[in-house]
């Protein structure tokens, strides 16, 4: 069962998008696995304290993308083969990087400075 224990939604972004993001990140980081059962809409709604319409929208979007399948109505399962995992990882990487680039640009820093900053921080982290 996909766990939402460490999911906390924030203001400023529609919750259904945050749920979709959470699941995609889980897939990309392989904490959520192919074939894992997703909580029912009602259960997730109660767990998060969020209206079922929101959950429905999130699940619906994931189903459209083929990431979630509903078998026999009630239960939903994650459907992410290796190709899909890769695609999602790509999407997230591009998304995150875009955000970083935009943030750097907003602060008026050159590309070289930005990259060297990133390198320093990256290596510092691994020490």
């Amino acid at each position: 069962m996909i766990s939402f224990e460490d999911f906390m939604f924030v203001d400023g972004c529609p919750i259904y998008l945050q749920i979709i993001q959470y699941i995609k990140r889980g897939i990309a980081s392989e904490t959520i696995h192919n074939g894992e059962e997703a909580p029912s809409r009602r259960a997730l709604s109660a767990l998060l304290g969020v209206n079922p319409n929101t959950i429905q929208k999130a699940y619906h979007n994931l189903e459209e993308e083929g990431i979630l399948t509903s078998r026999s109505g009630a239960k939903s399962y994650l459907c992410a083969d290796q190709k899909t995992v890769e695609r999602i990882r790509r999407e997230l990487l591009i998304g995150d990087t875009k955000e970083w680039v935009n943030a750097m640009k907003q602060l008026n820093i050159s590309k070289e400075e930005a990259f060297s900053l990133a390198e320093n921080i990256w290596t510092a982290k691994e020490l």
Binding site: R42, A43, S45, A46, L47, G49, V50, N51, P52
Partner: peptide, 11 residues
């Protein structure tokens, strides 16, 4: 209150 909202959504 938070408990209540959650329980409500569940039942």
């Amino acid at each position: 209150r938070t408990d209540f909202y959650k329980v409500l959504l569940g039942i």
